[in-house]
């Protein structure tokens, strides 16, 4: 089982643990957060790390730990929905392009090339700037920039799978084309898709944070890691280090964790390793 092998590697086990912690925290935010994240308390404004406020407070005396937990909710939700949309769209387009070939392939791949011609972040930035920076638009922007990853991946896998003898056998047995793709080819393309989606999750979180950092992503008062980092950055010189350190650390840890798990999954699901499993 890949999960047991994953657990054996300490680093990726720790990374998996980090993802789990962040996810659970996001799911149970209202119950886990010690304070209301939006509740100001002038008495403790800009308070440093303490027992009552383990990660300190901001300018309005809002508890930073509570804000961080609630922010993780947004980051994960946006990244996850963007990844899910991009994966669905990309896999469908890629499967059509790879299996049908011909003009469908040309059309899809030229569209993908057009999207890829722009640096992903610049494109996401342009979309949110043009459409307005609602959460839905951030999701749409990230999803669109991620579609090419999955399209190209699935197209390549389809091209390989299409030529296999089991694909021919599936046709001989009386499957219709969509049944061949759905029941025979696609399931054999899933392992690399999981790897790619895990790696892309990290990148998606980074993009949400980056967009919010420059003010084009998630808007206050809703807290978000990138936006919190941006707010905290102003306080570095005046000595309130906790305001930038903890949100920045949250981003780094989560992105790193997704990348590590993705890398390990890639090694584990490598077709050459399949026999060892």
């Amino acid at each position: 089982m890949p999960w047991r092998r994953l657990a054996r590697n300490r680093l990726s086990f720790a990374a998996l643990g980090a993802i789990l912690v962040v996810t659970v925290a996001a799911l149970l935010a209202p119950w886990l957060a010690p304070y209301d994240p939006d509740e100001p308390d002038a008495a403790v404004a800009l308070a440093s790390v303490s027992v009552r406020h383990p990660l300190g407070t901001d300018l309005y005396g809002r508890d930073q730990l509570s804000r961080l937990i609630h922010a993780g909710r947004v980051d994960l939700l946006v990244a996850l929905s963007a990844t899910a949309i991009a994966l669905t769209l990309g896999a469908t387009l890629g499967a059509a392009a790879g299996y049908r070939g011909g003009w469908v392939d040309h059309l899809v791949m030229r569209g993908v090339d057009a999207v890829m011609a722009f640096p992903a972040f610049i494109l996401a930035l342009a979309i949110t700037a043009a459409l307005g920076n609602s959460t839905a638009n951030v999701v749409a922007a990230i999803a669109l920039t991620h579609v090419p990853i999955y399209t190209r991946l699935i197209r390549g896998e389809m091209l390989k799978a299409r030529e296999t003898e089991y694909a021919e056998a599936a046709r001989t047995v009386g499957n219709r084309p969509h049944q061949i793709v759905l029941y025979h080819l696609f399931p054999n393309c899933v392992p690399p898709l999981i790897v790619q989606a895990t790696l892309a999750m990290g990148f998606a979180i980074l993009t949400v944070a980056a967009l919010s950092f420059i003010g084009l992503g998630i808007q206050p008062p809703q807290s978000e890691w990138g936006q919190m980092t941006a707010e905290g950055a102003g306080y570095v010189v005046s000595g309130e280090w906790w305001l930038v350190l903890f949100p920045g650390f949250a981003i780094m840890l989560t992105v790193l964790a997704f990348n590590l798990v993705g890398d390990t999954l890639r090694d584990l699901l490598d077709p050459r390793m399949r026999g060892v499993r």
Binding site: E165, Y166, E168, A169, A170, H184, P187, N188
Partner: peptide
């Protein structure tokens, strides 16, 4: 088919 392994869907 010729190849009994390749002609079976592994999944």
């Amino acid at each position: 088919f010729q190849d009994p392994t390749a002609s079976l869907n592994p999944r």
